[in-house]
Amino acid sequence: MNFFGIPDIYLVILGLLFLSIIMAIIRVIKGPTAPDRIVGLDTINTIVIVSMIIFGLAAGSVIYVDVAIVYAFLSFISTLFIAKYLEGGEF
């Protein structure tokens, strides 16, 4: 099988990473309280960063790694803001 010229082994690895993203999405949907959902989102962010790097390796293009760096810092800032919002009080 040749899917956009990506070797088979990287397809398997990206599929397994997608499986763990799906487990985190189940937690986001089920989670009884709001902090539970945010924990799921934080885990999804980290896995997405790593799978961007692996996809860059599979596609042989280094630009995905730069996108991953920017995504890491932006997702960190969004997590901090949501945590501050849940905590209540003044900004």
């Binding site: 309280t33 902090p35 945010i38 997590t79 945590a83 501050k84 849940l86 905590e87 209540g88």
Partner: peptide, 22 residues
């Protein structure tokens, strides 16, 4: 970037969860 931001985000979430009453 991952090593710096991941534990810091975890502290923020844990503190927010405790203050919001979980």
């Amino acid at each position: 970037a991952i090593l710096l931001t991941n534990p810091t985000g975890a502290h923020a979430l844990a503190r927010a969860a405790h203050r919001s009453g979980v």
